[in-house]
Design a protein around this nucleic acid. Sequence first.
RNA 1: GGAGAGGUGGCAGAGUGGCCGAUUGCACCGCCUUGCUAAGGCGGCGUGCCGGUUUCCCGGUACCGGGGGUUCGAAUCCCCCCCUCUCCGCCA
Length: 428
Amino acid sequence: MLDIKVLRENPDAVRAGAVKKCMPDRAEAVDRALALDAELRAMTPRLDAMRSEQKAAGKQLGKLSAEQRPAFLEQQKALKVELQAMEEQEKQLRAELDTQLSLVPNIPDDDVPAGKTDADNVEVRKVGTVRTFDFQPRPHYEIGEAQGWLDFQRAAEMAGSRNYFLFGDLALLHDAILRFAVELLVQRGFVPVDPPLLVRDAAMFGTGFFPGGEEQTYRSEKDGLNLIGTAEVPVTSLHMGEILDAKDLPKKYVARSACFRREAGTYGKDTRGLYRVHQFQKVEQVVVDVADKARSLEHHHDIVKNSEDLLQACELPYRVVAVCGGDLGVPQAMKYDIETWMPSRNAYSETHSASRFYDYQARRLGLRYRPEGGKPQHCHTLNNTVAASPRILIPLLENHQNADGTVNVPAALRPYLGGRALLGTPVF
RNA sequence: GGAGAGGUGGCAGAGUGGCCGAUUGCACCGCCUUGCUAAGGCGGCGUGCCGGUUUCCCGGUACCGGGGGUUCGAAUCCCCCCCUCUCCGCCA
């Protein structure tokens, strides 16, 4: 969440930010928060004075004679009743303020393009050449089903739609790309993590997914736990409530985890194939560092580059887009998506998402650090996909397919496939 | 799942109704003493909020796992929840 001081000092910028994100209802939360804050601040001096009085009176009590005591106690009881009423009011105001403040979206940065939907995202650069086929290329699901690598039918029968079975070489390729992703980041100094997949609400709230993302989340009501939609949640929350030492920053983590998404409200969209599924594996990079905008920008650049390097190593054409205001989530200040070329969609489609938050998540998480000789401050956080599979299998299969249904393995992935350069047998 | 013990400031560890925002030790910072690969003395050393001064601070208030209750007054008593540890049971 934002610092209430930012709302006080620059309410227009905060409101404008919510509008840029196409969240007019959230803009109203700014005014509600400010009204509650003003009310709370008006009553605080009085409240503190009453507490002070009660405290001082308590200390006098012992010195009073037996005759003086009853009258004094009566007086204190009256004060107590008044105090309790006011404290009750304060508690409610504070809870309501927290609610409203948590609804206020992070302010989109100046480099966020205006726009409403992903159609308004702005291309930053395009890398690689889209292959020209001398045969009719097939969609990944046709190749996969012909090779016996994919089974959507049986998966749907036992688990519902948007589920899948991967078999054989495709199951191996799936694991290969994920392992490659982890190793690439480990080489670059990221600490590998295997995080919890079921988390408490505090982690969902702290990373900004709640409130708002409840419909996208699988939840075990019995245990009060949520299945993560991304390792960003447990990893960014790792140090919640802590005050880190500045000399231990930045913290860079790379986590491989299963991810679960309900995909509510997407019925009829991307129904074929591996594009939109309820469960997948993802390697995610998370950076926690000091509150310095320049450093955040550097990290953002670096984590995008990490993912670009992976795509280049996999010989996949892609483009980087700056996500527009309306397509930005509540907690992000700025986001780049990387879209990889998918022949069956005849389009670049999202495979990566790199966000910077400044201190928005850290404030919700109580994640702070102590600068050299200074007071604790909230950290800056960032994250980006390194590889999400099976979605990344779509461009891998489709861009590297041969006319006979076999698939070439990019050199970078061969070490994870026993050195093999070709997957599958001729099926077409 | 059952029984028990415990959660206090960076760490260790006192405190069982007001004298406690909290003894003490370690760690850390400053000064002093002294000198040689160290020791001793003195002082300082949590976080949030409100206000003042305005960036050195000062005053008030809250915080002893979280929430509620009893009380004029709670770290301290009661209830609920979370976490850690020990033992028993069950299961992989």
